[in-house]
């Protein structure tokens, strides 16, 4: 069965199709036994899942759990700010200390990011296949540029681990 039909059957089950498309898929289910079987399977899997999540209890007493939260809230309030988001830590390390304008610009740019003024159409999906690196991204709306920064937190690197920065620039 073609992938498109499989996904259409799913979308039909989930009520995500327009009425016209839904009618077409319904008609297909009527005449196509394979489509009907797949639709039934997805329907039954979905029905099995609904309302059948395992109940879990937090493995800490009410008092202990609350004490942790209360302590953290007090800490944050004493600090006077919310905990620094990753982009602020990145700025602290990589922004030029002399450029007050640069810092101000950074705050404007990143403030826009933080306020979700960036269109979700421009969001990216990032995959970090290596265990020893981490990455984060930020976007400048004014420069229409997204920067994905790869950081290697460990100072010592294994010999067989590639360092994308090492000797890339010769």
């Amino acid at each position: 069965m073609k992938e498109e039909l499989q996904l259409d059957l799913q979308a039909y089950l989930d009520g995500e199709l327009s009425s016209k498309d839904a009618r077409e898929v319904a008609a297909r289910i009527e005449i196509d036994p394979e489509a009907r079987a797949l639709h039934t399977q997805m329907q039954q899997t979905s029905a099995l899942l609904k309302g059948n999540e395992v109940d879990r209890r937090l493995p800490q007493t009410r008092e202990f759990f609350w004490s942790q939260i209360e302590r953290q809230i007090s800490r944050e309030e004493q600090r006077g700010t919310t905990s620094a988001p990753w982009w602020l830590e990145f700025l602290r390390r990589h922004v030029g200390a002399v450029s007050g304008v640069g810092v101000a610009a950074a705050l404007v740019i990143l403030g826009a990011v933080q306020l979700n003024l960036v269109s979700s159409d421009l969001l990216e999906e990032i995959d970090n296949p290596l265990d020893e690196t981490t990455s984060f991204s930020f976007r400048s709306e004014s420069q229409k540029m997204t920067v994905v920064w790869i950081a290697n937190p460990s100072s010592k690197k294994a010999e067989d681990e590639p360092d994308p920065g090492e000797e890339i620039v010769q």
Binding site: T40, Q41, T45
Partner: peptide, 23 residues
């Protein structure tokens, strides 16, 4: 995507806890 359709047995009566554990 290529696997045959497998239908969970709707008539199988499972204890709810057992079903939830499987899920």
């Amino acid at each position: 995507r290529q696997m045959p359709v497998v239908t969970p047995n709707p008539t199988e009566k499972l204890e709810r806890t057992e079903l939830r554990a499987r899920i």
